[in-house]
Design a protein around this nucleic acid. Structure first.
Lengths: 194, 194
DNA sequence: CGTCTATTTGAATGTACTCAAAAGCGGTGG
DNA sequence: CCACCGCTTTTGAGTACATTCAAATAGACG
């Protein structure tokens, strides 16, 4: 069943009745996003939140020199949206696109608003989801100001081994806030130590 | 009335009945934290969430070389806790202390758990609070990997002018992830341009 | 008033970036 | 299935951003 993964994800924090599950799944819209295809473009308003069932998304922005800075990756079992654009319905400051052919389940903003009212348990679910995101973000902030690039890279590989395997180094570099050239040098230094 | 500020803070996102307000305020414990005094120490379990009514708190950690890295400041009208320690009741990885003589209103973990059950509106309140924190954290992550220290400092001053005025430069430097000496040099460069 | 901490300034060093060029790898079409 | 094209990764030289250490000055607090 195609909803297994998302229902399991939700059951980690709240339990749903049969009817609540039906209401929830009736709101889910499947969508395929091909590699390099945009899910959300800077300036657009984010109308859905996405749950990845296959593939990989990234949210990022681009500065005036054309450099990309990655805010977040989302592989299978991760949620993705531009929080600011989605929750306040204002133009997005980031882009979201697919690094691989990707399958998502989307929930539209009006549906989610209705869900939160009809099944308040989901307020709890999304509160916990948000709190966990805060914890991860604080760790990342701490590391980005306290650690050297080589340490940040080692921690990234240790924390997200699946992502580190499948992501191109250019993307990891853009997440760590370094150039691809410098990441290559870091990796060759780390390799020497074995 | 001492609860004005916190009730106004809450009313920005949800509205409470008379009884809900009474239940909520009955859970608030006032506490004074003197300058340099700890509110939470690394390794302890965070038993309360704090709302600052006067003064200034900071959460930070210290590396093996004794350098401090500041995760967050909280002045009047801000909430502060170690999210991970408080919500999962595990040992804190950060310290929280006062940079000024500070007054807070605290809510104990068991009280908050009960509040969330008895008044589910608070699930919504804390979800929105968490989502706003995520937006701020993502902005900070983006700036910390994309901008030079001088740009991060200018943005900090523009975004939090009240904090920039009252905080010592050492603390701002520890928040931006640079040395106090380098911040001093940045400031003298910026001053030249006038 | 005196002590302690915060800030400034300078010289030497280290981390990370830019630019350029070559080598490796993967997907696509013929 | 191979050849090609485009993109990713590697390597090197020169440069810029940021740190360390040291010492002098200014400022805050009891």
């Amino acid at each position: 069943m195609a909803y297994d993964l998302i229902l399991q994800n939700i059951s980690r924090h709240i339990s749903l009745t049969q009817e609540e599950t039906s209401l929830f799944t009736s709101m889910l819209q499947p969508k395929k996003i091909r590699k390099r295809q945009y899910y959300l473009q800077e300036g657009d308003i984010c109308k859905n939140v996405a749950f990845v069932t296959k593939g990989c998304l990234r949210s990022y922005n681009v500065d005036q020199n054309g450099h990309e800075y990655i805010i977040q990756f989302a592989i299978e079992d991760w949620w993705m949206s531009d929080m600011e654009s989605f929750s306040k319905q204002k133009p997005a400051v980031v882009n979201i696109d697919a690094l691989e052919h990707t399958d998502v389940l989307m929930i539209a903003k009006p549906d989610l608003d209705r869900l939160l009212i009809e099944v308040p348990k989901f307020e709890r679910f999304f509160r916990i989801l948000a709190e966990n995101a805060i914890i991860a973000h604080q760790t990342r902030i701490r590391e980005s100001i306290a650690l050297y690039a080589s340490e940040r890279y080692s921690n990234f590989v240790a924390r997200y081994p699946k992502m580190a395997q499948r992501l191109p180094q250019t993307q990891i570099a853009a997440y760590l806030g370094i150039t691809p050239e410098f990441l290559s040098k870091i990796r060759s230094e780390l390799a020497k130590k074995h």
